[in-house]
């Protein structure tokens, strides 16, 4: 086991280097560069009148360290990252890690809540579908979840805001941000309800689409397990259906579902640019999107690297979990 973990950890290094190198090359070789972009920005689709002398652009490039050969730039970056220094954003010269630290908690709150909700809702319905396979209610559930999955989230977000956010219809939910102004000085309980109140619409938008996949997966896994011999044995022993389903079947069916969590890590870290921009939530999605648009290389690199690292570790943990929980699987 220890050997296996060490081996896997060693594998992380080349993968990580590969990811960073690919990202680095993509963003550097792509058209558009941060120096000229910064000098010409005056607003959307509008340019400032100032002239841009070539010499000044050159100075800005030197300032950003973009005048060196690509490979040197990459190696310098790697060297800095080893000391956990992801550099400063081109946009405002603040440390990239500080910018991420500012936004990550918000994104994680949103995503953790929505993932937990997806699991809480989808698994029971999946089990229900499996135990009622091919009945009318199973089909209705299938149809309903697919129906939800098929609704583009930006569309739903916009409609929800229109209907529940105090347009010409209901005024129930706040439509932007994640807390009321001044909420930071409120007592905890009031702060919490205010926060949750703000999160309801965005979390709804992030949640409904995931239900179909997970409930279908649960259903499939359950059906698979139910056909296994040990379930038959359990039934034959006269155990109640409830015990059979929950204690024996579900437990085993859940395994692949739980390990799925590892794959959700990058999405959790990356946030959702669409939902965040509609609801004015300053999360990772917005940060990533803006950094791509403004060619803020250090931020792009940091987001990719950290998300990659998290996922690799997540994959490792899920494999280990799998092996620990399922005696049939042995780690080489």
């Amino acid at each position: 086991m220890a050997n296996y973990i060490i081996k896997r950890l060693l594998q992380v290094i080349p993968t990580l280097l590969g990811i960073t190198l690919i990202t680095f090359l993509i963003i550097q070789l792509a058209p558009g560069n941060p120096a000229t972009l910064k000098l010409q920005m005056a607003g959307q689709g509008e340019m400032g009148e100032s002239a841009i002398a070539q010499q000044i652009i050159q100075q800005t490039k030197e300032l950003y360290g973009l005048d060196k050969p690509l490979i040197v730039q990459y190696l310098l970056w790697v060297k800095r990252v080893f000391t956990l220094d992801f550099g400063n954003s081109f946009k405002d010269h603040r440390p990239v890690l500080a910018k991420i630290a500012e936004r990550l908690p918000i994104t994680i709150q949103l995503n953790v809540i929505s993932i937990v909700l997806v699991y809480l809702i989808a698994i029971p319905f999946g089990v229900y579908s499996a135990t009622h396979a091919d009945t009318f209610s199973d089909r209705a559930l299938t149809l309903f979840f697919f129906f939800l999955y098929s609704l583009p989230s930006f569309w739903v977000a916009v409609l929800l805001i229109m209907f529940f956010g105090g347009g010409d219809f209901l005024d129930v939910f706040p439509v932007y941000g994640i807390s009321s102004i001044g909420a930071d000085s409120w007592p905890f309980f009031r702060w919490l309800t205010d926060r949750l109140w703000h999160l309801i619409l965005p979390v709804t938008c992030l949640t409904y689409g995931g239900l179909a996949y997970l409930s279908r997966l649960t259903r499939a896994e359950m059906l698979e397990v139910i056909r296994e011999d040990y379930i038959r044995t359990a039934r034959a022993k006269g155990l109640s259906e409830r015990v059979v389903i929950f204690k024996h079947a579900l437990r085993n069916a859940l395994l692949p579902i739980i390990t799925l969590l590892a794959f959700l890590l990058p999405a959790m870290f990356g946030g959702s640019v669409i939902i965040e921009s509609i609801f004015s939530i300053p999360g990772m999605g917005q940060l990533g999107f803006e950094s791509v648009l403004s060619r803020d290389y250090p931020v792009i690199m940091a987001i990719t690297t950290i998300s990659a690292l998290l996922t690799l570790v997540g994959l490792l943990i899920s494999d280990i979990l799998y092996a620990t929980l399922d005696p049939r699987i042995k780690l080489e």
């Binding site: 058209p31 558009g32 560069n33 000229t36 972009l37 010409q40 689709g45 509008e46 340019m47 648009l293």
Partner: peptide, 25 residues
């Protein structure tokens, strides 16, 4: 084109025609 690429094309004169706005003093 996305703004960053748009600006670059214009500065390198890689365009036939384009539309933009100037903000003046």
């Amino acid at each position: 084109l996305e703004w960053a690429v748009f600006i670059q094309n214009i500065q390198q004169h890689q365009f036939d025609a384009c539309t933009l706005a100037w903000s003046l003093s």
